[in-house]
Design a protein around this nucleic acid. Structure first.
Lengths: 366, 366
DNA sequence: AGTGCTCGTTAATGCGCATTAGTAATACGC
DNA sequence: GCGTATTACTAATGCGCATTAACGAGCACT
């Protein structure tokens, strides 16, 4: 018969201090003079079925408190229960040094909502699974430690996500996503919001409006373009193929000359999409400055999203705000529902219009 | 002889799809014609001791691949008696809406270092343990589910922290801290950095320098004051009790008149400490503006810390930078050492001097 | 007194994996 | 030809918890 081995256990203070390891249910049970099963029933027991006398319950609670007992999340999980942990997985560092595309605003909402529902958050990182980036095919599977997981970032590996979804693991992507079929997501309603921006511009008298977007087919870009085009249509404006300008190399091609050309062609308003990097908007602003154009006067500008932090001030861009905290909160709500086995869905969050100061009445045609 | 019950297992695909649950090592073993233990050895085996023939190893790997086996992290962690989780506990929301005192810069370092060491992060929040704020007396107990925990924020409850420390739970506070004796911490070397700032000012010819600080006896404030006084002493300057000005209500008492009075008394440089709120510096700046003083010309200003994000630009304050990411990383290193049972300590992180543009040579006395 | 309850508690079991003692098989030495 | 290494693998065990069958005690009826 193998003797119980003594493994080195982390969490146990080193020898001299004489301290013991984290308490287990067994120790609580001993102290309370009951069995381990009883402890489990008392502590785990939000449930009804439990028939525990008030006296016993109290003894157990006291013992647990005095020992500072806290259940082991892994064991809880393994025993087919929940551990009240929600994962957050980003496909880049969650806290990038480059303050640009950070998930901070989402996390504000995520934290609040999770806290309100009694969940703690586990931050997983793409890179942490090996430092060398892509890691194994199980990079994502670490999230299974939690009851469910939120996914942030554009470049989620579809294949591995599909696996999680197929296994019925509760997963929610922040941002619209078609790829792994069946993956739940919450997203901002870019279509409606973009539509509205165009409608407002049209109401200001603009007849020729051009969308500047990145040359990337992320859903976020597609949605904005769709809303933009629908907006044009709704306003009875022509929507030719040259209504949309794609910038492969934004800084290079979006030149002051380009701007002049548009103006000459009758364009009076430019709409840029917001992205991680803020490239289109940045390029637009600098081109306008270089060309020496008067922004609300000669040319109206709008931004389909929130401006990057570093140029949020001064002329507040006309456009719409992405309610990121609300998005984060909505994601947590959805995830919590999935974890609970419910079938909730609340995919779209509305983006309020932001008046700003970069759009004005269309200038009278020469 | 209890019959194996069939529990509803999360992570198992629901019935109709006909999917079977994801494979276990046992299935891989069956397919490869070996035992579960062998599978574990092959798959888990970064270790040396394992004696596995190349042929068997390959069979197992093939089988695992063909079944798409991924290990269950919960089981892995349970069996390994470690969960590779480090806690992060803030005494306010970790992601405050108020962008002022955010822990973001720390988290950058914390995430990086934790990732590099293969730890995931559990985010606890003061409020998450009950919604209604203070929660039970065991609010802090939750952190025990991690292997160790980082504490952020000024207002950590000493009593509960003491409990954790006494139990040998690995805990590290970010920021110097005496209170619960034995609590490990990492902090910025405010003393040396403040000392240096004063030395530099003295080198510029300033003879009378006043420190503006909050009326709070946090270690961070105390340290700066100490460094400030030592700096004066080192430069052979007088350090009377009126060298330090405490602002109970900063905006109110730090008036332009106050400034004038200092100037009249021969003060040529003011040094403000940095705090969560940035109050002292903010008050100082606005008083100087109101008084219509020429900053580097008539009066030199220095900030003992990094400026708040919203007024980081324009005249970059002379002073020192707090290397928060490095602090976060150092905290994780220390915590990891404690978890491993080592006795490492690396408490102080140096703060580099920032030349800035708010300090210049002392004006010639009239 | 015996039968049928309900109530409170415990013993037993397994989740999926890592670990170690142990066994079978082959190689080596004299 | 028999002990001793060495190699390649398997059986058995437990991590900490949730779950459930089973059990003893008390009580109300026949």
């Amino acid at each position: 018969m193998a003797e119980p081995r003594k493994r080195a256990r982390p969490g146990r203070a080193p020898g001299p201090s004489g301290r013991t390891s984290r308490p287990r249910q067994a120790e609580v049970a001993r102290l309370a003079g009951v069995s381990q099963a009883t402890v489990s029933l008392v502590l785990g027991g939000k449930k009804q079925g439990a028939a525990i006398s008030a006296e016993t319950r109290q003894k157990v609670l006291d013992a647990a408190l005095s020992l500072g007992y806290v259940p082991d999340p892994a064991a809880r999980r393994l025993a087919a229960a929940r551990n009240d942990l929600l994962g957050v997985f980003s496909f880049t560092a969650t806290f990038p040094t480059d303050v640009q595309h950070s998930y901070y605003p989402f996390l504000v909402g995520v934290e609040q909502e999770a806290a309100a529902r009694g969940y703690d958050l586990v931050l997983f990182t793409g890179s942490s699974s090996g430092g060398a980036g892509a890691a194994g095919p199980d990079a994502l599977s670490r999230v299974r430690l939690a009851d469910g997981c939120l996914f942030l970032g554009r470049h989620a590996p579809t294949k591995e996500l599909r696996r999680l979804v197929e296994d019925g693991f509760p997963a929610v992507h922040v941002g619209r996503r078609d790829e792994p079929e069946g993956l739940a997501w919450v997203g901002a309603d870019y279509v409606s919001a973009s539509h509205e921006v165009v409608t407002r511009l049209a109401a200001l008298g603009h007849r020729r409006i051009v969308l500047v977007r990145e040359d990337d087919d992320a859903p976020a870009s597609t949605d904005r373009e769709r809303g933009f085009l629908e907006g044009l249509e709704g306003a009875g404006l022509p929507a030719g193929p040259d209504s949309v300008f794609r910038t492969a190399d934004p800084a290079g091609t979006l030149s002051p000359e380009r701007l002049r050309a548009w103006l000459d062609a009758g364009v009076t308003a430019l709409v840029a999409e917001e992205t991680d990097t803020g490239c289109p908007w940045r390029a637009l602003r600098s081109a306008v400055d270089e060309a020496g154009l008067d922004c609300p006067g000669e040319l109206s500008l709008a931004l389909l999203g929130s401006p990057p932090a570093d140029l949020a001030a001064e002329p507040v861009p006309t456009g719409f705000d992405i309610p990121r905290p609300q998005l984060g909160a909505a994601a947590v709500r959805l995830l919590a529902a999935l974890v609970a086995g419910e079938e909730a869905d609340e995919p779209l969050v509305a983006c309020p219009f932001r008046a700003g100061a970069t759009a004005g009445p269309a200038p009278h045609r020469a």
